[in-house]
Design a protein around this nucleic acid. Sequence first.
DNA 1: TATTATCTTGAACAGTCGCTCAAGTCCAGT
DNA 2: ACTGGACTTGAGCGACTGTTCAAGATAATA
Lengths: 191, 191
Amino acid sequence: MSTARHDRQETIKKATQLFWEKGFHATSMRNLQDVIDLRPGSIYASFGSKEGLFKETLQFYANASLERLAAHAATSPPLDALKAFITESVSAKKGSSPSDMCMLAKTVAELTQDNAELLAEAKRLLKTIETAFAQLVTKAQQEGALDEGREPQRVASFLQMQLMGLKAYSRATDGKANIKALIDDAFASLA
Amino acid sequence: MSTARHDRQETIKKATQLFWEKGFHATSMRNLQDVIDLRPGSIYASFGSKEGLFKETLQFYANASLERLAAHAATSPPLDALKAFITESVSAKKGSSPSDMCMLAKTVAELTQDNAELLAEAKRLLKTIETAFAQLVTKAQQEGALDEGREPQRVASFLQMQLMGLKAYSRATDGKANIKALIDDAFASLA
DNA sequence: TATTATCTTGAACAGTCGCTCAAGTCCAGT
DNA sequence: ACTGGACTTGAGCGACTGTTCAAGATAATA
């Protein structure tokens, strides 16, 4: 039975914060040791390598995103849930989240085939989120809130692309741009 | 009376390729030495530091982008030029450019305040490109190709955001997604 | 309390990082 | 051909990288 003296989930959470802020390469194991308050031996016993730990933080991040989306979907109609999720993702208050970027998109941007497994994992998780989008779009169509002629997968692609663009753009402009207006423009084509 | 034995522009070009592909942190000075075929002493005499060289590659990249846009604008109506520029930027054949991402967006995604000057420079260059977009939008309005009610700056923001999203999304899906369709969707709201 | 199994520690490893500088190479002017 | 000055070279600097492992600390069982 696991009798670890440190909470694994809590460790992953702290590591996620740091990796999300600084990216994979700019985060050193010594940074991590300080932040998660564990010495190398423990980290390597738990996660095997820097890559192993990073992979778990990616999954942790994606999971948290899916849960946020599900929470919106539980209380709002599908389209409203999607818009609320995207708005919340993009316009999170400065400082409340480690980076203005989506951690998965940031990872895909940063890594190359030198870290093929991590790159593939980030792509896979993005696809998972997109699938969740597509399911909500389908639900919206069944409820009559959206034209049935549109292919759900294509709409989901469009939304995912928009979300990536909005977050990247928001970061590039220090959030000074009129993000709300951009989101409205983006959703206009769905109305 | 520059009598340098190596062409400075050519050096910057090669460095741009490498930085664009691997990003700032993952590119080591030893990688650079091999690719641009210069020893440390020469590099530091010419560029001062890794940061100094990177800064020049950012400017080189932005300049090349502006020139591409100008070339389209010289032979096509403004809106067509914009769409052509974006299409070309996003759907460049795999392998022809070092990364599927925009180098400036990639840099903004990667860097933090630990490299404040480089981060600021990348943001500034993105803004420069956006201004060029806005000028073309204004021209389109003067020629009657676009509703005058729209604020050019807002349209330019929207386009910049779309471009960032398209490139990031294209990278995340290995170009397997129907990018053409996404571009059409993006431009649809301007028609 | 003694024993055992598990978890944690931190010094140390080989390798790489960005960078410097004395020595060497090259070429223009005489 | 020779000299003077600009340019290039590459060994090597101190600091830092991801990682290992023998030794120590801790909790559970007897």
